[in-house]
């Protein structure tokens, strides 16, 4: 079966890839492009470990086909830090110990970034509901919520520590 030729933008860079019709965007990112930061936790859209942004919209990449990336702009966990300079969300996750095993963490960070992109000043309840599509078995979420609120405040220029 002929592969599809897809032209897309990933983390700001123009990317071309070949993929099978059946391959998900998650498969393409992980298997074809070696962007393994997005994780397969359920392959059914229930856990959020594969969260990416497609044209700014938060999606589970396990539920998107690779061919659907054509002409779109994709953002993944690999695009968040600039070299060794962590994104404020990553930095606050580090400071609050908001991760333990770390496998769900890329999904939480991408989802939280999507929230702060559209709502820079969320309430705690808004953060909890926004992140309710991301499962974490280790942390009990509390430190994640604190980290997101703290990062939001810092990105608004409000806090120092």
């Amino acid at each position: 079966m002929a592969k599809h030729h897809v032209t897309t933008t990933i983390n700001g860079e123009s990317v071309e890839f070949l993929c099978d019709t059946r391959q998900t965007l998650l498969d393409v990112l992980r298997d074809e492009l070696e962007l393994t930061g997005s994780k397969e936790g359920c392959a059914s859209g229930d856990c959020g470990a594969c969260s990416v942004l497609v044209d700014g919209r938060l999606v589970c990449s396990c539920l998107v086909l690779g061919v659907e990336a054509e002409g779109k702009s994709i953002e993944t966990i690999e695009g968040m830090a600039k070299g060794d300079k962590l994104h404020p969300l990553q930095q606050k996750f580090l400071e609050h110990a908001a991760l333990q095993c770390g496998i769900c963490t890329p999904g939480f960070l991408v989802a939280a970034k999507a929230l702060l992109d559209s709502n820079p000043n969320p309430t705690e309840t808004e953060v909890r509901y926004w992140l309710a599509g991301n499962l974490c078995r280790c942390t009990g979420y509390d430190k994640i919520i604190r980290a997101v609120l703290d990062a939001a405040a810092e990105m608004r220029g409000e806090t120092h520590g």
Binding site: T36, E78, A81, L86, L94, A97
Partner: peptide, 8 residues
């Protein structure tokens, strides 16, 4: 261990 996990 966190910087590597946070960067995917």
């Amino acid at each position: 261990e966190d910087p590597r996990l946070l960067k995917g």
